[in-house]
Each structure stands twice: as structure tokens, then as C-alpha cells.
């Protein structure tokens, strides 16, 4: 897994035993604390945490977006991050002679992001009212040749053509679009639903009591919804779009 700031998605892969290594600056669950399944896997040696800083985590995707073979960095100088990571190499500016660290591009094989609306061609629209983190998703989508976008809803192309300024990821940059309503659960999607805090806590409780990822998530989407959507969240999500609507 290659990311910049990571959370539940990494924890779930670790819980499922599907994670070999993660390249990132953070794996945690914000107000819920550490990511317990990832932490246990890292502590036991089952998973490798290849450590970058947050800014470098972002910039590695910019290197891939720009088609560069390295990204020059100074902000990690003097820290332990520069030791023992073959993807961070001491370098020198060929023009000024100033020292830098050259960092490898993110270079993911596949990028998967979740968005609000897409059309059948794969055009992806962002909400008009958005957050800085949305633009990081755009950089990710433009940093890889194989891009899978899951969306809350597939709408008719005419709907998106009415607001082409919101289509930040055009279809030629998208390999596949998948309609996956409530697909970001238990995290939030701006304009659709908030985070499912009780659902996150229930996930943590279930995995900490030894249940497997399969038992926790079920085998089908229906299983997942029944098992993991908390009652309070279900009623909130049913009220539909909240804010940030295009």
C-alpha cells in the first residue's frame, strides 16, 4: 500500500492479513487513536512501515504525476527518516551544488479513489464546495495509468456536462468507474453522509475480540451493510445529501 496519510483502509487490510508493507507518514484513526490491527502487524514484523514524512508522502505522488524519476526534498534532513530507507538517497543539486535528498516517486500500480459522482464514460466530478483533501485524490488519479474510481452515484453524462468545471478527473484518466453507494463507509463522503462513529467503534471492538476481517465485514455487500452500518448512521445517511452539493 502506498499512501500519504492512512487510516482504516490500511487497518482493514492488515486485519485481513493482506498487507505486506505500507509507504506512508501516518497510520492512525484520528480521534479513535492507533490503528490496532496495523499496529499489531507492524509490531510483530508481519508488516513493514516504510516511513516518509507527510509532505514527502504527498510529493511522491506529484513526482509520479509529473513523470519524474525522483523528487528533491530538504525537510527530512537530520531525522531518522533518511537512515535505512533505500527510497531516500542523499543527492546534490546539479546547478547550485546544494545538498538534497532524492526520494522515489510513489509509482503505484493501481490507484483506487472514492468520489461522489461519475458518468458512464468515467468522468468524475468533485463537489463545488470541497476540501483540500479532494485535490490530493486528483493528484493520485493523475499519478497512475490504472485508476479505479468508486462513486456514490453514476449520473447521466448531460448532468456532468452542465458543470464541466467540476469534472476534475476526465474519463481518459480513468480505467474503470464503479457505482458503490455508501462505498466509503464507515468514513464520510462530503455531500452524502458523515462518518459512522459507532460503526468505527464496533469495527474496532469486533477485530480486537479476535474476529477475522471476513467475519467483521461479511461475504457480500448486503452482509456488510447489515453488520457494519450502525442504526444511528443508517438514519442519518437516509436523509441524503448534507452539504457541498454541486
Amino acid at each position: 500500500m502506498i499512501g500519504h496519510v492512512n487510516g482504516l483502509e490500511v487497518d482493514l487490510l492488515a486485519a485481513a492479513g493482506l498487507l505486506r508493507s505500507v509507504e506512508t507518514s501516518y497510520v492512525g484513526l484520528e480521534r479513535f487513536g492507533r490503528a490496532p490491527n496495523f499496529s499489531a502487524a507492524w509490531e510483530s514484523g508481519a508488516v513493514d512501515f516504510v516511513t516518509f514524512s507527510e509532505q514527502v508522502g504527498f510529493d511522491r505522488f506529484r513526482a509520479s504525476q509529473a513523470g519524474l524519476s525522483f523528487w528533491p526534498v530538504i525537510g527530512i534532513a537530520g531525522s531518522d527518516l533518511v537512515d535505512g530507507n533505500p527510497q531516500i538517497v542523499a543527492a546534490q543539486c546539479p546547478i547550485t551544488g546544494r545538498p538534497y535528498y532524492a526520494v522515489t516517486p510513489a509509482a503505484p500500480d493501481v490507484v483506487v479513489i472514492h468520489a461522489g459522482r461519475g458518468d458512464c464514460h468515467g468522468n468524475i466530478a468533485l463537489p463545488a464546495e470541497r476540501q483540500l483533501s479532494h485535490s490530493l485524490d486528483v493528484i493520485l488519479a493523475q499519478a497512475c495509468d490504472t485508476v479505479i474510481v468508486t462513486v456514490e452515484e453514476i449520473v447521466s453524462p448531460e448532468v456532468l456536462r452542465a458543470r464541466p468545471d467540476l469534472v476534475e478527473i476526465p474519463a481518459f484518466q480513468v480505467t474503470a468507474v464503479v457505482e458503490a453507494p455508501q462505498g466509503a463507509h464507515p468514513t464520510s463522503v462530503l455531500g452524502y453522509y458523515p462518518a459512522d462513529d459507532p460503526g468505527i467503534q464496533e469495527y474496532l471492538d469486533a477485530t480486537s475480540s479476535g474476529a477475522t476481517a471476513r467475519e467483521v465485514c461479511g461475504s457480500t455487500e448486503d452482509d456488510y451493510r447489515k453488520q457494519r452500518h450502525s442504526a444511528s448512521w443508517r438514519s442519518q445517511a437516509a436523509t441524503g445529501r448534507t452539504q457541498g452539493d454541486a
Binding site: V5, T24, S25, Y26, V27, G28, R34, A35, F38, S39, A40, W42, E43, F49, T51, F52, S53, E54, Q55, V56, I74, G75, I76, A77, G78, S79, L81
Partner: peptide, 18 residues
């Protein structure tokens, strides 16, 4: 021996240099 996982360096390196 061994270690306890925390969350990672996040933006601390940049805080301390930039």
C-alpha cells in the same frame, strides 16, 4: 525488545526544519 507502534512521523520533520 520489540517496540510499541505509534502513528508515524506525520509532518514533524517539516515542522522542525521548514
Amino acid at each position: 525488545g520489540g517496540f510499541r507502534a505509534l502513528v508515524g512521523p506525520i509532518l514533524i520533520p517539516e515542522h522542525m526544519t521548514l
